[in-house]
């Protein structure tokens, strides 16, 4: 499972980060600091919840 984020469209709500600081790191301004990553095994639910928490809907879950 993969997460892809439209980083340029992030407006800094940081709701994904509130779900998982580890999966969704922020830069010093509080905006998302990662564009794409493989979800580690066992963290799939957390990743999905982080994606759903985004008010801007810029986090895409790509299921295997």
């Amino acid at each position: 499972m993969k997460i892809r984020i439209d980083k340029a469209a992030c407006v800094g709500n940081a709701r994904c980060w509130a779900v998982s600081e580890e999966l969704f790191p922020l830069d010093d301004d509080g905006y998302i600091d990662i564009e794409e990553f493989e979800v580690p095994a066992g963290k799939e639910d957390l990743a999905r919840r982080g994606a759903r928490a985004c008010p801007e809907r810029v986090i895409q879950v790509i299921e295997d």
Partner: peptide, 14 residues
């Protein structure tokens, strides 16, 4: 409830 509200507005003026 899941899903995100926009009480703080959406877009660059968040």
């Amino acid at each position: 409830r899941e899903g995100a509200h926009i009480a703080f507005n959406a877009g660059p003026h968040r």
